[in-house]
Design a binder for these strands. Structure first.
Lengths: 243, 243
DNA sequence: CGACTTCTTGAGGAGACTCAAGGGTGGTGG
DNA sequence: CCACCACCCTTGAGTCTCCTCAAGAAGTCG
C-alpha cells in the first residue's frame, strides 16, 4: 500500500506496525473502471466496499427528470460504499467520473479491524464523521448559495482534497469533469453551470480550459463562496490503542 | 437506560449483556434544555457528545442573511456531536427545538467501547453510516425538489423516525416546530414554508394544527415527495463479537 | 391588557429552468 | 486522409419558482 491512499487516516494520528499489517491485507489487485462505469448500483443488495487508488468517483442517484444527481465526490484514499452497509439495499450508486483504479475490500476485513485493531477502527470511524461534515457543508452550499458560489465552493473543496494527498500541488490541478458533471454535483442544469463557469472566468477568479483548472485568486474565491476550511483534529487523545 | 433510546442501535442486531453494561455507564443524569438553547456551539473547541432522551434538536449553522440553517433533525436515541469529533472546532451548533433532555457522555466512554466492545462500536459505526445516508437524502431533497415536495419529505421522514421508536404510533404525531423552523429545515423562507403547508392542507394530504400533525394520505405524500424508505440491515453477519 | 412571536396574505423582482439551436472537438470507419 | 458522428460547450429567449418587502391577523405569555 502506497503512502497516498492512507493520507485520510494518518491525518488523525500515526499508524503503528499492526495497522499497516492489516491495511496490507486490503491491498489486493486493483480493478479498473472507465468513466461512467459503476462500482456500485443504487438499489443493489450486493454488499462490498472499495478503496480508491486513483481517479475521480462520485456517489450518484437517478433523478425523475432522467438526469443524475451527484451527491459527493470521492478521491484516492477514500473508502467508498460504507454508508450502504447500514441498509438492505444500496442508497446510492458509485460511478467513475474519470479512469479509476479501486481495490475491492471484503467486509470480513472490517470485522477483523473492529475486533483486533480498535485504533484503526476508530480512525476509520473518524473519517466517516469527517464525511458527515462534508455532506453538511454540501447541504449548506446547495441550500443557500447561488450557482456561481456553489461552483466556487466545489473547486475550493476539490483543491483542498488534492492538497491533502499532495501538499506540494499548487493552485492548478487536473479536473476530469465535464460541465455536465459539475452541474450534477452542484445541482443545476448544464446550461447554468456553463454560465457560472464563464462568470468565474470573466471575473478573473479561475482559469478553466478543458480539464485544466487553476485558481487565479483563491482569497477572492474563498470570500465569494463563504468557504470554511475544515481542519481535522490530529492525535485525538481519546483514540484507543491496539491490543 | 430505557428501551427507547437504544432503538437505533438494536435496529442492527441484538445487544448482549456487556453492551448494556457499558451503555449503562453512559446513563448519567440528563440535562434539560429549553427551546432555542444550544447543546453545542458552532466553532467551539469543547469536545463532548450527547445522548438525546426526549425532545427535538437539530444541527444548525448561521447564515449570512442572519437566519439559521437547520441541517439535520435529531430525535431521542440519537448520539449527537460525533461529526465534530473529527475536527478541531465544531462544524455546526446543536440547538434544541423543543424542551429537551440529553445526557452528556464523556469521550473516554467511546475509547472504552472501541477497545473492549467491538460489536457495540461497530453498531455505533453503522448508525453513523445511516446518518450519512440520511444526509444524502436531504441533499437530494434540497437540491432537486420543490418546497412543497421538501416539506412532504420532511414530514414523512420525521414520521418514520417516530414509528421507529414507537411502532404503535399512528399517522398523527406531535411536532413542536414553528413554520420558521420548517423553513430553516427545508431551506426556504418562512413565507414560502407557510404557502407549502397550506398547499398540503388544501389538497387534503395533511392536517396540521398548531403542533399536531396528521398524515391524511400517506401514499399520496410518498408519491409527491418521491420518498424512499430506508430499511436498515438487521443482524449483519459481519458484525464482530464482543470479547 | 400589552408586547411579542407566529401565522397569513399580497405584489413585484431575480435567479434558475426549459427549450432550442449552432459551433467546436475527438473518435471511428471507410 | 477525410467524412461522419457523438459529445460537449456555448448562446439566446421565454417561463416559473422562490425570494424580498411589507403589513395585517391570530395566538401566547407575562
Amino acid at each position: 500500500m502506497q503512502a497516498t491512499p492512507v493520507a485520510r487516516l494518518t491525518a488523525f494520528g500515526n499508524l503503528d506496525e499492526d495497522d499497516y499489517k492489516v491495511l496490507a491485507k486490503m491491498g489486493g489487485t486493483g480493478r479498473k473502471f472507465a468513466p461512467n462505469e459503476f462500482l456500485q448500483r443504487e438499489g443493489s443488495d450486493f454488499r462490498r466496499i472499495w478503496l480508491l487508488m486513483t481517479g475521480f468517483t462520485a456517489s450518484s442517484v437517478n433523478r425523475a427528470n432522467g438526469r443524475r444527481r451527484l451527491l459527493r465526490i470521492h478521491l484516492s484514499g477514500d473508502l467508498v460504499g460504507l454508508p450502504s452497509l447500514a441498509l438492505i439495499t444500496a442508497a446510492s450508486s458509485i460511478v467513475a467520473l474519470s479512469p479509476v483504479v479501486a481495490i475491492p475490500i471484503k467486509i470480513s476485513v472490517l470485522t477483523e479491524v473492529f475486533e483486533s485493531y480498535p485504533r484503526l477502527a476508530a480512525m476509520i470511524f473518524l473519517v466517516s464523521q469527517e464525511e458527515r461534515v462534508a455532506l453538511m457543508d454540501r447541504l449548506i452550499s446547495v441550500g443557500g448559495l447561488s450557482i456561481v458560489e456553489r461552483v466556487a465552493n466545489l473547486l475550493l473543496h476539490i483543491h483542498a482534497r488534492i492538497l491533502c494527498s499532495d501538499p506540494l500541488a499548487g493552485e492548478a490541478f487536473y479536473l476530469p469533469l465535464t460541465q455536465g458533471d459539475v452541474a450534477d454535483l452542484v445541482g443545476c442544469t448544464p446550461v447554468h453551470a456553463n454560465r457560472a463557469i464563464q462568470h468565474l472566468r470573466s471575473t478573473g477568479l479561475v482559469s478553466w480550459n478543458r480539464q485544466d483548472v487553476e485558481l487565479l485568486d483563491r482569497p477572492a474565491l474563498v470570500k465569494l463562496a463563504g468557504y470554511i476550511p475544515r481542519i481535522v483534529e490530529r492525535d485525538s487523545s481519546w483514540l484507543p490503542v491496539n491490543r
